[in-house]
């Protein structure tokens, strides 16, 4: 049953990303089916669903990380500020500079904390020292890491704890002032304390950045997000305000999932 997902488009006054008829194939097997929805600006949107449902695949479409995988074929469109990101005229490097990303496994570069934060600026050609230092400080403060690392900015990032590493990755993403930050299960490898730190950070960033977070932890989604989309087997089942989706789900499948009958 490839149901019509049109009803998933809920009225959003100020959307930043519009997904239209998005289909994605890995070779011959289809991973995403006909996705249609809008993502609001400067809000936190959560994507939930059982593992393998296509959440990560979807957000990797938004900054075209799937380009790195040879066998992926995409049709449909994702509009970012009225511009189709799959359009030939869109430069993928520009696109990625506008869209930051935080991965499931924290992966700071084996460089100093400072160099990690300003990596994006450096490769963008910024060389002025005061600018870089300021950006580093601002980003680290934003990501609530400044107080912990300000005395050892030039130590290796590999010496940080798991939660600190992940916050460093967020700082690294913020430093290039992106419009959107994608988070691919950012807390799944962290202990509860660090998870709390990150969730708090996401709440703080809410309102300043558009954040799209993938999680399989429904509590987390309900804690941090404004809107939630439920994906199941590559299809968007339901999309709506987080409070609505978790209290009065429209679809049976959504209800089954959030009540823990499967997944």
């Amino acid at each position: 049953m490839k149901n019509d997902n049109r009803n998933a488009i809920i009225a959003i006054e100020d959307s930043i990303v519009q997904v239209r008829d998005l289909n994605l194939f890995y070779g011959t097997s289809q991973a995403l089916f006909n996705l249609n929805f809008d993502i609001p600006r400067n809000k936190v949107t959560a994507l939930i669903g059982p593992s393998g449902c296509g959440k990560s695949t979807f957000i990797r479409c938004i900054n075209r990380m799937n380009d790195l995988v040879d066998s992926v074929n995409i049709n449909g469109s994702i509009q970012l500020d009225q511009q189709d990101i799959f359009d030939k005229s869109v430069d993928v490097i520009d696109l990625r500079r506008k869209i930051g990303m935080v991965f499931q496994k924290s992966n700071p570069f084996p460089k100093s904390i400072y160099e990690n934060v300003i990596y994006g600026l450096r490769i963008g050609g910024v060389t002025e020292k005061p600018v870089l230092e300021e950006a580093a400080e601002v980003s680290l403060k934003r990501s609530a890491l400044w107080d912990e690392v300000k005395d050892r900015l030039h130590d290796s990032a590999m010496g940080l704890s798991g939660g600190q590493m992940q916050r460093l990755c967020i700082a690294r993403a913020i430093a290039v002032s992106p419009d959107i930050i994608l988070m691919d299960e950012p807390c799944s490898a962290l202990d509860p304390r660090s998870t709390a730190h990150i969730e708090e950070l996401i709440r703080e960033l809410n309102g300043e950045y558009t954040i799209i977070i993938v999680t399989h932890n429904m509590q987390q989604a309900s804690r941090v997000s404004d809107l939630t989309a439920f994906l199941y087997e590559g299809e968007l089942i339901e999309f709506g305000k987080t409070t609505d989706l978790f209290t009065v789900p429209v679809k049976k499948a959504t209800e089954d999932y959030i009540t823990g009958r499967f997944g």
Binding site: D91, I93, D94, R97, I123, G124, G125, V126
Partner: peptide, 11 residues
Amino acid sequence: MNKKLLKRNKF
């Protein structure tokens, strides 16, 4: 963003 630089990088 420095457009010229970006171009050079891409080149």
